[in-house]
């Protein structure tokens, strides 16, 4: 065993540890920026490193829990976590996931379900990607029209898709103020939205961050930054329980979790701090790119092009991580330069 490999005590294999560190870093970066666990990104990476697949999911979930803890802590300091909204949504998500899982079991009894689930996943990802990009282009068009018409009252980025105001008009009691997110709506709105995203997550067998983040933005009306922070809070709670259940089943390699967490701690800081310098639409566009990469990999896997799928996932997470690093470093340099020049930044708003 050389200095570049590390012995995994449970599975008994030697793993190239800088690879684990790099996976942790990239997923930390992306997860902190988009507010998701990112299990779909970790498994292909572990596979490439020769990590035993029997331990991959448990190791992945434990690492996601630790990483989300670091990101949530940082997001909370920026005021990006609406705990009240997060706790209410956990209830809806849990009930939804249970129901979604029951639907899958019912379908399993009826016949082959794997392909159906995969194609539903593809359709959903395509819908999310379409929503994100259509929203962006609509907002850009509205901005251009406002600029051409000389409308000084138009707020940049406010002309995109926004269903939340319509949903907020449904006044079924109890009505709740979510002060951090700046929303006043019926408590049933986040419960129903989280229940629906939970049903989909349970049906698809995923954590759900990929669905919940856009749902928080488009249906509940949370600002993008709050959606990211609040979603991470949910991922953290579910991840910790996941770590426990997978450990009970003997499917966890703690040494790998620790190595990945060391990388993720740095990545999560970069990803989370980068949200400070990124506009809401910037985050959403990059998120749309990540969704497209996930979509391509699933389609390729369906047709058994596993190697190309892995290359696409790893290639896209590398590119997205680099973009996030660039946003963070560029923003930080500007901020420090402005501070030295004595320019005071305006107060934040959501």
């Amino acid at each position: 065993m050389d200095i570049w490999t590390m012995h995994m005590p449970i599975s008994g294999v030697d793993i190239f540890w800088p690879g684990l560190l790099l996976i942790g870093f990239s997923v930390g970066c992306i997860g902190g920026f988009f507010g998701m666990g990112g299990a779909w990104m970790v498994t292909p990476g572990l596979n490439i490193l020769g990590f035993p697949m029997a331990f991959a999911i448990g190791t992945d979930i434990a690492h996601i829990a630790g990483k989300s803890m670091i990101s949530t802590r940082r997001h909370a300091k920026f005021g990006n976590v609406d705990y009240k909204l997060g706790v209410i949504m956990i209830v809806g998500t849990m009930i939804g996931i249970e129901m979604g899982a029951q639907v899958v079991m019912l379908l399993e009894r009826l016949g082959k379900v794997e392909s159906v689930v995969r194609w539903v996943y593809v359709a959903l990802l395509a819908l999310i990607a379409w929503l994100v990009f259509a929203d962006y282009f609509k907002a850009v068009k509205a901005d251009k029209a406002a600029a051409a018409g000389g409308n000084a009252e138009h707020k940049a980025g406010s002309g995109g898709i926004n269903w939340a105001p319509t949903l907020h008009k449904i006044k079924i009691p109890p009505m709740v103020h979510f002060n951090v997110a700046g929303i006043y709506c019926s408590m049933w709105l986040p419960i129903i939205v989280s229940w629906l995203t939970g049903v989909l997550a349970g049906f698809l067998g995923i954590g759900g961050g990929l669905i919940r983040m856009p749902a928080l933005v488009y249906f509940i009306g949370a600002p993008t930054h709050i959606a990211v922070g609040t979603d991470l809070f949910e991922v953290m709670i579910s991840g910790l329980y996941g770590a426990f259940t997978y450990s009970l089943k003997g499917r966890i390699e703690m040494v790998a979790v620790f190595v990945m967490l060391c990388g993720a701690a740095i990545g999560a800081q970069i990803g989370t701090v980068a949200t400070k310098y990124a506009k809401g639409y910037g985050i959403r566009i990059l998120f749309g790119c990540a969704v497209l990469a996930c979509l391509c990999s699933i389609i390729l896997k369906e047709f058994k092009y596993n190697t190309i799928a892995t290359v696409i996932v790893l290639g896209s997470i590398s590119i997205i991580s680099l973009v996030i690093c660039k946003i963070m470093i560029g923003g930080a340099i500007n901020e420090i330069r402005e501070k030295k020049a004595g320019i005071v930044a305006p107060e934040s708003a959501h």
Binding site: F78, K276, A345, P346, S348
Partner: peptide, 28 residues
């Protein structure tokens, strides 16, 4: 590990000179 690494990174980030309490960009 999450708590310790988070606290350690907090300590490091404090020394970077970045304001880690507020955002300057205003956008939905």
């Amino acid at each position: 590990m999450g708590v310790v690494l988070g606290a350690l990174m907090d300590l490091i980030m404090k020394h970077t000179g970045i304001d880690l309490t507020k955002r300057s960009l205003v956008e939905h």
